[in-house]
Nucleic acid binder design. Sequence first.
DNA 1: TTTTATGGTTGATAAAGTCAACAATATGTC
DNA 2: GACATATTGTTGACTTTATCAACCATAAAA
Lengths: 140, 140
Amino acid sequence: MPVENTGFSDLLWQLAFQVRSRCQRAVAESGFTLYGMHVRLLHLIAAEPFCRAQTLVETSGRDKAQIARLLKDLQAQGLLTRAPHPEDGRSRVITLTAEGNELLATVRAAEQAVESEFLAKLSEREVETFVRLGRKMLAP
Amino acid sequence: MPVENTGFSDLLWQLAFQVRSRCQRAVAESGFTLYGMHVRLLHLIAAEPFCRAQTLVETSGRDKAQIARLLKDLQAQGLLTRAPHPEDGRSRVITLTAEGNELLATVRAAEQAVESEFLAKLSEREVETFVRLGRKMLAP
DNA sequence: TTTTATGGTTGATAAAGTCAACAATATGTC
DNA sequence: GACATATTGTTGACTTTATCAACCATAAAA
């Protein structure tokens, strides 16, 4: 039995787009020519040491073709390295370079400034609730 | 002063993509060859009688070029009509056709089935809280 | 009346996304 | 060990979403 119209999808569609485009504009204004997806991947790699492409595919839910291309771009920009995986000859371990880490720190600052514009309208407790409920929906 | 890392952007990015791609797959499996953005626009038009392109641009935050193209598509598919605006010679009033309304009702059912998969993990109260907090962030 | 602003259309292009094909490697079966 | 099947990652090819620019018609301001 489908739920009543909660406005959930509409809300998510709107909020996600607003946050996303605002963040991307802020990153661009900081002088970086990274795609939004490049930034998201940098975040994921930083959050998950010893990851490989397959890890990112699973975590992000994105298509492996897209992930492979983005990784290739980021490696070309010197932001990450890929070393043979010790246990799987088909994979490589992905690591951020010092440059990659530095850039990510700067990008994070820009993104957090944008985030705070949205979150300023909520109490700390409300923010925590929103994130917790969202994560609950994402849990397997 | 930027907020601490709340995980907000990450969550939003993940959740929005998951919901979006699931919904789009469900709509496609219902036999419709509509883009995701077509569907979103149909929702917006249905929700706002007497709207025009500019209305949709403002409500959605999308670029007017994109909105114009999507409207053109939907009109070509017989899902909406555009009549001269009584007060503004540059605009047209957008109205869903009977076919458009019918299609939207069907699409809504498919989307709500998907929605309920995500929302089933929350109580009704939690759903309402999530949506309320989200809307609070979007308020001007 | 003239100038400036706005709404909508189209051109052109970029970013995000998806499915397919294939080579290399891993795993399972006998 | 040999062979069949599955998985991982790369690239080709294409679609969908998104953005900026240019322009015309109309509206609003000066």
